[in-house]
């Protein structure tokens, strides 16, 4: 039953993606700046004929609805077009860059959960204690620090001053790794390559912390406040009246219910992580999607922007689906 409902939800993503594709298509073309001008360097040297030729090659001389027809028709066949600037199929570029971004997003999410869950729980259980006050002050810092600044500070301290962590890239040049999925940590595990595992984890650490700090702060605050509310509830009182240990009261009766609002926030933060990627990837020279997209936007590389936005949209939709599924497990009143 649940499997059918989940399949239904997956299938409804198709019209959503269709809508996203159309909206993105028009919005990019509404922005000022002509890709052909940018490509030819806005120099007077380019002749009118060359410009015409390029426009024709990219179908930019056709009416918008015809261009849209080309785009959607190709997209249905799994062809997202050809990057104007990089002269490569967009799909290839995305496949090449996506794993790095996924790896950093997962790393940041894990780091933020590892930091936020214990802090959120403990500061609620020991409300107004020194630990609570310090954590909430820390959370305030975490939210306030911009990613590019934190990234640079971390690089200065750990890579330049202490020299214990790498400052950039995903893996050292002298470490061999056979790519399977493109997620280096996973690949080193799959191929049993311990030196590569260690090296890729070390590379992942600073970017993940930089990206995850703000998210950790938000999750910790939300979890703390929902734990505080739940700990005052009647069912927690009943659990105590049954003779349950404080551990069971907090970790079973309270946490299970406090996670419901927290999961929503975590789901939304995945979007924030994807957005934050662009800056952190630049700071750490991380070869991910974020930097690719920034370049594509500056160059009005329409097909590449479209492709990347589609990827972001799919990620959002899927994250929402996962959140909804988790919800049904946490809150029995909700069904898919």
């Amino acid at each position: 039953m649940k499997a059918i409902k989940i399949l239904e939800r997956v299938l409804t993503t198709i019209p959503i993606m269709f809508g996203v594709a159309i909206i993105v298509f028009f919005f990019i073309r509404l922005t000022p700046g002509d890709p052909v001008d940018i490509m030819l360097g806005r120099s007077a040297a380019a002749s009118q004929r060359e410009i015409e030729q390029l426009r024709h090659q990219f179908h930019l001389d056709e009416p918008l609805h015809v261009q849209l027809g080309y785009f959607l028709g190709d997209a249905l066949r799994g062809n997202l077009g050809y990057s104007y600037i990089r002269n490569k199929p967009v799909v290839d570029l995305l496949v090449e860059r996506l794993p790095a971004t996924i790896e950093m997003t997962i790393g940041a999410l894990l780091i933020s959960l590892i930091i936020a869950l214990p802090i959120g729980i403990l500061s609620a259980v020991r409300q107004n204690s020194l630990l609570d006050r310090l954590s909430m002050a820390g959370a305030f810092l975490g939210i306030s620090m911009p990613g590019f600044w934190l990234g640079i500070v971390l690089i200065l301290f750990f890579a330049v001053y202490l020299q214990i962590l790498p400052a950039q890239g995903r893996i050292s040049y002298d470490v061999e790794l056979q790519e399977v999925t493109g997620l280096y940590v996973l690949d080193s595990l799959l191929t049993g390559n311990l030196p590569a595992l260690k090296d890729s984890l070390l590379h992942l650490l600073l970017p993940s912390i930089t990206l995850g700090a703000g998210v950790a702060a938000i999750i910790a605050r939300v979890l703390r406040s929902s734990m505080l509310e739940v700990l005052r509830s009647d069912y927690v009182k009943l659990a105590r009246a049954k003779g349950a240990t404080e551990w069971d009261v907090v970790m079973k009766h309270a946490l299970r219910n406090a996670l419901i609002p927290t999961v929503t926030v975590v789901g939304l933060q995945v979007g924030v992580l994807l957005g934050g990627n662009m800056i952190v990837e630049t700071v750490f020279s991380w070869p991910g999607l974020g930097r690719l997209v920034v370049d594509a936007i500056f160059n009005r590389d329409f097909p590449l922007i479209q492709g990347a936005v589609m990827i972001y949209a799919i990620t959002f939709v899927l994250t929402n689906l996962v959140v909804d599924i988790l919800y049904t497990y946490l809150n029995p009143k909700i069904t898919l």
């Binding site: 009647d234 069912y235 009943l238």
Partner: peptide, 25 residues
């Protein structure tokens, strides 16, 4: 005290809906 709670002295609360934990059968 935990040994006594629920075993020797048990309590029934006022509002049953909010007293049962919504997340468990």
């Amino acid at each position: 005290m935990r040994q006594i709670r629920g075993k020797d002295i048990a309590m029934v609360f006022q509002d049953p809906l909010s007293t049962l934990n919504p997340a468990f059968p």
